[in-house]
Design a protein around this nucleic acid. Structure first.
Length: 931
RNA sequence: GGGCGUUUAGCUCAGUUGGCCAGAGCGCACGGAUCACACCCGUGAGGUCGGGGGUUCGAGCCCCUCAACGCCCACCA
């Protein structure tokens, strides 16, 4: 027998061991069945999973387990993301705290080695968290975005793009993190409103005695100003276009230009200083001017003023904030600024690095980019034409809007942790270009001098930088050509020190994990995948790139459906995340409630809404927990207890052997009709990715229909030798089918029950209903719907339920003692014997013939008039009847008003009008009897 | 500033193409140690569906408008 109480922790551990020992999740590309593949959104190896990951992975496991049971050849690939910047930042921080060293102290190799150790520890933790949750991934295929398999894909893709001209070298203004000394993407920064000043500076116009005033929130950047812009239509200033100003402190002459985009005539003085190397808008001006104005970089990599221009000598080496102070002092001293009137308090939005929390500096640097114009188009089309569908649909808009901008994608990262860019560069300046060897190097295609077998293994690009007069030759080498790499290095080529953006490798995830570019059996079987489940925050960063890269590399979309699960918020309504520190470890919930309870509750939360609020509190042991998960825990307990009861009943009832007749009893037919309806609801829920509806249907069926009604209804039959064995057959089949439907959500408990069930009764199939036996529940097949027309029984049972409800209500209202049997007579309506017995059983009453006793409580329900005797509280009875009368009067008035309107009777469907008439008649009939 | 979304019972949320007296869980009230289950069983109270206007025979659902909140994008020198 099943234990009276179950302990989720030990039960889950033993079930998990069974699944592992028997390789239950191992995928085989040669096995039969339609392919069904999901790739896990690889969590960042930086840290532990929180409940946001838990909901995402629970939903994936539900789909995987359901499809496994439906006979698909399923593969769920687990994996972890190296998460470049986040991981390196964490390890560098640790290095600083524990050893007081920077990454430069330990060197590239030393740092990468330390990060690998970190990765091992946290990667293992993530895997163990997923396993505690019961995720039925094929763990033998665990991938890491930085493992050899992924590295091969990354290098092959980069080479292909390089050769196709999809990647290019460009000078761009990037977000520079001066602390981590790396560029970071727009997605990795946040903005805050900071209280600062707006400084006004007077720039003398050369050759006149006039000056123009510019305002700025960053006065130190004036040192690198290369122009002043005015609006060409501004009558106050357009005369000055073409003249120059003498830049204070540096004494450089810089041009006054007209730019209608940068300058808003109505704002401030109408004059704007232009610092192309340190402001994105100003950089855009520089691009529009096509090199006609200069671009000066003022900053060192660690955020200080450099000494590139002699006029900056007084500020060189200062941090930008120190330089700001001195620049302002010097401007005031020089009469270009009035300390009293030209410095005004101002609120400005400043960008900060998500990782280091330091202010971002716009910084001009050389970066690799992916050219999006052509690559984005097929990825857009796939969603526009419905080849890829988003669930809920509305999320497709975000994808289309973002990808539609087709902004080139900067992929270089000044980091050591990641896929190193497979490009070797050699620069030729004017000086060394004078040497004949260098000249010929530039004029000839270098690949001509390579051995023939190398020629298609390398591709060259050449770029000239007009600002430095440098020409650079870039060589991209395909993976697996170490010899060629050495040859080029010996020829003076140096590998790019940068690594690729993390999203470059995660963009390849759906095919790199299957072995691409090798034409593996896995790739042939499982690409494209079936569905992708993820959060809405990475629709652009990740989903869009996977679609784009999948189409680029394989000519096929990576998945047909994208399911966006809700974001889990904490009690304050803030997104649960590692960086905010409000993430709750699912294992803590598993410890307090069990994995099945966690999963079931998360499934009920997976509605189509975009956020789910999940207040968390500490329990006595200081662990995070939440009452929210009581829902799942209670249901799991119910499942356990009911199954325990059913199994004990089946063990003590003569087993039906063979040739079970079609079920004829009222409860049996009714529960089968409920099962059929539930199965249909579950199918729809799965098809539409409504995990909440899936869980809710089963909750209502199992707890409401099966436990509250069916199990109570059949207790007498199970004790009756004449009826016991046929009811036992239905009972067994229904529990069996319910377990099958529940297994994807509640895998551990159902698996435990399953093996006991197999001991008690191995074959539970019913005529017309296929429930093939299986040793392990994981491998059980999806049930088929019971066949037969149960509609008459369903209607009769529903009437009995209504009567039971009305009588129970009567008992409660009159405070009838719990165990007291009440006597009931009927004067109208008919009820079959089975239904009558059911009412007697569940409402603890006895129907007796004859006229009603004097003063019996009157009740109308299910089309019948009942009189309950022995109700001793006339006051309560009067108030109950009065209340009912009031309800009916109100209802009748509403219905009459509706029917009185010709518009309604003429325009509404006839069926509806008839229904309304019937309702009104019923209400009047009941009122008449209550009068 | 632009875009998307949310607002339904005390709390957290369902509510399909407009059509039975708007639902669930928790919480609350009342009754219950009945031999599967007190993490339970039975019953009940509680909502003018954010405000206003419109379309319709009929609106939680469609349209307009206002308000509050959330997210994404772009950000004024």
């Amino acid at each position: 027998d099943l234990a009276a109480k179950f302990d989720p922790t030990t039960l889950e551990a033993s079930i998990w061991k069974t699944w592992q020992d028997e390789n239950c999740f191992l995928a085989d590309p040669t096995a039969p069945g339609e392919p069904y593949c999901i790739v896990i959104p690889p969590p960042n190896v930086t840290g532990a999973l929180h409940l946001g990951h838990a909901i995402n992975n629970t939903l994936q496991d539900i789909l995987i387990r359901a499809h496994r049971m439906k006979g698909f050849n399923v593969l769920w690939i687990p994996g972890v993301d190296h998460a470049g910047i986040a991981t390196q930042a964490v390890v560098e921080k640790q290095l600083k705290e524990k050893e007081n060293k920077t990454r430069h102290d330990v060197g590239r190799e030393g740092l990468v080695e330390r990060i690998w150790k970190w990765k091992q520890e946290y990667g293992d933790r993530i895997v163990s968290q997923l396993q505690r949750m019961g995720c039925s991934c094929d763990w033998s295929r665990l991938r890491f975005t930085l493992d050899d398999m992924c590295a091969r894909s990354v290098r092959e893709t980069f080479f292909k793009m390089f050769k196709d001209g999809k990647v290019f070298r460009g000078k761009r203004l990037v977000n520079w993190d001066t602390h981590l000394q790396t560029s970071i993407s727009d997605d990795e920064l946040y903005t805050e409103t900071v209280k600062t000043n707006l400084w006004s500076i007077r720039y003398p116009i050369d050759g006149t005695d006039q000056s123009m005033t510019v305002a700025t929130t960053r006065p130190e950047t004036m040192l690198a100003d290369t122009a002043v812009a005015v609006h060409p239509d501004d009558p106050r200033w357009n005369w000055a276009i073409g003249k120059h100003v003498r830049l204070p402190l540096t004494h450089r002459l810089i041009p006054i230009i007209g730019d209608p985009i940068l300058v808003d005539m109505t704002f401030g003085s109408g004059c704007v200083k232009v610092t192309p190397a340190h402001d994105p808008n100003d950089y855009a001006v520089w691009q529009r001017e096509g090199g006609k104005i200069a671009i000066l970089n003022l900053m060192t990599l660690d955020g200080k003023v450099n000494d590139a221009d002699p006029s900056w000598a007084a500020y060189a080496g200062m941090t930008f904030s120190a330089a700001r102070k001195k620049v302002v002092e010097d401007l005031c001293a020089g009469g270009f600024m009035n300390a009293d009137t030209d410095i005004k308090p101002h609120e400005a939005n400043v960008s900060f690095s998500d990782r280091s929390k330091t202010a971002i500096q716009p910084y001009l640097s050389d970066q690799w980019f992916v050219r999006m114009a052509e690559m984005a188009e097929p990825a857009l089309e796939a969603v526009r034409d419905g080849t890829i569908k988003f669930h809920p649909e509305r999320h497709g808009q975000q994808y289309l809007a973002w990808l539609g901008e087709k902004r080139d994608w900067p992929i270089s990262r000044q980091l050591w942790w990641g896929h190193r860019i497979p490009v070797w560069a050699r620069s030729f300046t004017r000086e060394n270009n004078k040497g004949s060897a260098s000249e010929s190097s530039l004029d000839h295609d270098p690949s001509e001098r390579l051995k023939p077998e190398f020629r298609d293994q390398v591709h060259f690009q050449r770029a000239h930088d007009s600002t430095t007069g440098t020409t650079t030759r870039y060589a991209c080498i395909r993976p697996g050509n170490e010899e060629l790499e050495t040859i080029l290095q010996n020829a003076g080529y140096i590998q790019d020190p940068d690594v690729l953006d993390t999203w470059f490798s995660s963009g390849l995830w759906p095919h790199s994990t299957l072995g691409w570019p090798e034409n593996t059996a896995d790739l042939a079987k499982w690409y494209p995948g079936a569905v992708l489940l993820t959060g809405r925050d990475i629709i652009t960063l990740w989903v869009a790139r996977m679609v784009m890269m999948g189409i680029y590399n394989l000519g096929q979309i990576p998945f047909r459906h994208v399911v966006i699960n809700p974001t889990i918020l904490d009690g304050k309504g803030e997104r649960m995340s590692k960086s905010k520190g409000n993430g709750v470890d699912p294992v803590e919930i598993i410890d307090t409630h069990g994995a099945d309870a966690l999963r079931f509750t998360l499934a009920t939360m997976a509605t189509e809404t975009q956020d789910v609020r999940l207040p968390v509190k500490k329990d006595a042991q200081g662990r995070n927990t939440s009452e929210k998960f009581d829902l799942g825990r209670n249901f799991c307990t119910k499942l356990w207890n009911a199954s325990k009861f059913v199994l004990s009943q089946l063990a003590s009832t003569p087993h039906p052997t063979s040739g079970i007749a079609n079920p004829t009893s009222l409860p049996d037919q009714w529960i089968l009709s409920r099962l059929a309806a539930t199965l249909a609801a579950v199918e729809t829920a799965l098809e539409t990715y409504r995990f909440d509806a899936y869980a809710k249907s089963l909750y209502d069926f199992f707890w409401g229909d099966f436990c509250d009604w069916y199990l109570e209804a059949i207790k007498p039959a199970m004790k009756d030798p004449a009826r016991g064995s046929s009811t036992a057959a239905v009972l067994a089949a229904v529990l069996d089918a319910a377990l099958r439907l529940l297994h994807p959500v509640i895998p551990f408990i159902t698996e435990a029950i399953w093996s006991k069930f197999n001991e008690v009764l191995p074959d539970r199939s019913l005529p017309g209903m296929s429930l093939p036996p299986s040793k392990r529940h994981v491998h059980a097949l999806w049930p088929t719907a019971p066949t037969g027309d149960f509609s008459a029984a369903a209607a009769e049972f529903a009437r009995a339920q209504e009567l039971v409800g009305a009588l129970r209500n009567l008992r409660n209202e009159h405070k009838v003692e719990t165990k007291k049997v009440i006597y009931v007579t009927t004067s109208a309506g008919t009820l079959g014997d089975e239904a009558r017995q059911l009412v007697e059983l569940l409402a603890l009453c006895h129907f007796k013939p004859g006229p009603p006793a004097e003063g019996a409580a009157r009740l109308l329900s299910a089309g019948m008039e009942l009189f309950a005797e022995g109700i001793i509280d006339p006051h309560a009875e009067a108030s109950r009847l009065a209340k009912r009368r009031e309800e009916l009067t109100k209802l009748a008035a509403t219905l009459e008003a509706r029917l009185a309107s010709p518009a309604y009777t003429e325009k509404a469907p006839q069926k509806l009008v008839d229904q309304t008439r019937q309702q009104l008649a019923d209400a009047h009939a009941e009122l008449a009897k209550l009068a």
